[in-house]
Measured scan of single mutants.
Amino acid sequence: KYLVLALYDYQEKSPREVTMKKGDILTLLNSTNKDWWKVEVNGRQGFVPAAYVKYL
């Protein structure tokens, strides 16, 4: 498993997404889509914009 760092705040806009705050450390679950990565944060799984996170 990889960890990624939230570069920006992101507010979920659909039930498939998750909210994150700048500085959050997220567990990367799937990065096959170049635009949306599946992550786990605070016990929830969902998608965030790939451009908003970077590998640690």
Rank of each mutant, 00 (worst) to 15 (best):
V39I: 08
S14I: 05
N30E: 15
Y52E: 03
E17W: 03
R44T: 08
G46M: 04
S14P: 05
K13P: 04
G43L: 05
G43T: 06
V18K: 01
W36N: 02
P49K: 04
Y10D: 01
V53C: 11
L28Y: 02
Y52L: 15
A51E: 13
R16I: 14
G46K: 02
K13N: 10
W37D: 00
S14R: 09
S31W: 15
E12C: 10
K13E: 09
A51I: 11
N30T: 08
L26P: 01
D9C: 04
L7D: 03
E40G: 06
I25N: 03
K34L: 10
V39A: 01
E12M: 13
Y2F: 15
Y2L: 14
G43N: 08
G23M: 03
L5H: 06
Q45L: 08
Y2K: 14
K21D: 04
V18S: 02
G46L: 04
V41N: 12
K13W: 04
K1I: 13
V53T: 04
Q45T: 14
T19K: 04
Q45I: 14
G46A: 04
K21P: 00
P15C: 10
D35V: 12
L56M: 11
E12L: 08
V41S: 12
Y55S: 13
L56D: 07
V4W: 08
W36C: 07
V48L: 03
W36F: 08
V39Q: 00
K34T: 11
Y2Q: 15
A51N: 13
K13T: 14
N33K: 06
L28G: 01
V4R: 02
N42V: 05
K22Q: 10
V53L: 15
E12Y: 05
K34C: 10
G43H: 07
D35C: 12
D9S: 08
N42H: 12
W36M: 07
N42F: 07
E40N: 06
W37K: 02
S14A: 09
N42C: 09
V48D: 01
D9N: 07
K34N: 11
A51P: 08
Q11C: 10
N42W: 06
E17P: 04
M20C: 06
G23E: 02
A6Y: 03
E40F: 06
E17C: 06
R16V: 14
L28N: 00
V53F: 05
L3H: 11
P49N: 03
S31V: 10
L7C: 08
V4C: 12
K54I: 15
T19D: 04
N42G: 12
N33A: 09
G43V: 02
V39D: 00
K1A: 13
L5K: 09
Y2M: 13
V48H: 00
F47C: 12
L5G: 04
L3Y: 14
P15Q: 10
D9R: 01
K22G: 06
K21T: 09
L28I: 07
L29E: 03
L56P: 06
E12T: 08
R44L: 08
P15D: 14
L5Q: 12
L3F: 14
V39E: 00
K38F: 15
V48I: 10
M20N: 00
A6L: 03
S31G: 11
K22A: 13
L7M: 11
Y10N: 00
L28C: 07
V18W: 03
Y2T: 15
P49D: 01
T32R: 11
A6I: 04
K54G: 14
W37Q: 02
